[in-house]
Structures are given as structure tokens and as C-alpha cells.
């Protein structure tokens, strides 16, 4: 039950026992700013999820800003360095682990989904569960705002495809 312990407390306790735990377990890819991220972002929780998220600069900025409000002690210029590192090294398509095999049904839009929608997360996120028909256009619009490289026409094709195959 991790929720029972604040991350800070875990660290305060762990610090005495294993002072170099966070460094040992640094899963971040090399790149400028890695050391700053490794220190600034491991004070309250481990780096595991950060290394698994892929997001554009705007998306990363939201996370980082949120962390500053929660107590991360980054100066304005440091925020820029961290966001740049994250967007560059953990941006769409960067340093991806091998994808989970997901076979999509044939249809117009399949190729777009396979190429555009797998650069930040596995297709398992996209095309497995059925969703409300009205949800798909909104989700695809969300993803475009997040940084999915799609034109409005492509977005419509993708939404139609997903609505046709993954709605009730």
C-alpha cells in the first residue's frame, strides 16, 4: 500500500539506509540535462514512470510545473533545461522500448493509427477497449493537443476508424 507513505517519507527513511538508491536506479537515457533531472526529479519519487512517459514539450511542461508547485526546487532556467531534456529524449518516438504486438482490424485509418498513435505509448492503450462513440473524436483531439502529429483531416479519419471498430 504505497499510498500509506508519502514519497518524502519513504525517502527520508530510505536515505539513511540506501543513500545512493535513486542514482543506482537511474533509468533515464543520456542527454544534456540528465543529471539535473535525475537529482531534481528523484527527491520525492523514483524515476521509473518518467522514463516510460513520452510526451511533447507542452505536455512535459505541465508535469514539471505541477511538480514545482508540489515542492520541486527548480529555478526558471532549470525548468527550461528539464523540459528540453524530457521533450528531446523522452519525446514522441524517442528511445521507445519494443512495442507490444497489437493487430488492428483492416480499414481506412489503420495505417495512420499504427504510425501516429504509437510514438508516445503502445497501441494497447489505443485500440483494445471499447469506448463511447462520442468519446473517440474528443480523445483524438486531446492527443493532437498533446503532440500527436496529425492534420485535422487525419484526425477525423483516425476518429472514424476507431469509432467504427472500437465502440459499441
Amino acid at each position: 500500500m504505497r499510498a500509506a507513505l508519502p514519497a518524502l517519507v519513504v525517502l527520508a527513511i530510505a536515505a539513511a539506509v540506501a543513500p545512493s538508491r535513486a542514482q543506482n536506479a537511474n533509468p533515464l537515457p543520456p542527454g544534456e540535462g540528465r543529471d539535473l533531472v535525475a537529482v531534481a526529479c528523484s527527491q520525492c519519487h523514483y524515476l521509473g514512470t518518467i522514463a516510460k512517459i513520452r510526451d511533447g514539450a507542452a505536455g512535459w511542461r505541465v508535469y514539471v510545473d505541477n511538480m514545482v508547485l508540489r515542492g520541486a526546487q527548480l529555478s526558471g532556467p532549470e525548468i527550461e533545461t528539464v523540459v528540453n531534456y524530457l521533450a528531446l529524449n523522452l519525446g514522441p518516438g524517442m528511445n521507445l522500448s519494443p512495442p507490444k504486438p497489437v493487430t488492428l482490424p483492416d480499414g481506412a485509418g489503420k495505417d495512420l493509427v499504427e504510425t501516429r498513435c504509437s510514438v508516445c505509448h503502445d497501441l494497447e492503450r489505443v485500440a483494445v477497449v471499447k469506448r463511447d462513440r462520442r468519446a473517440w473524436p474528443l480523445i483524438v483531439a486531446d492527443m493532437a493537443a498533446w503532440g500527436a502529429p496529425t492534420t485535422p483531416e487525419e484526425a477525423k479519419t483516425i476518429a472514424d476508424y476507431l469509432t467504427a471498430h472500437f465502440s459499441d
Partner: peptide, 11 residues
């Protein structure tokens, strides 16, 4: 008041 008590304090 400098905020959260972290293992590494910027200040």
C-alpha cells in the same frame, strides 16, 4: 521559509 524539506535542497 524555503519550502519542502528535500534530501537535496536547492537553497
Amino acid at each position: 521559509y524555503v519550502g519542502a524539506l528535500l534530501r537535496t535542497m536547492r537553497y
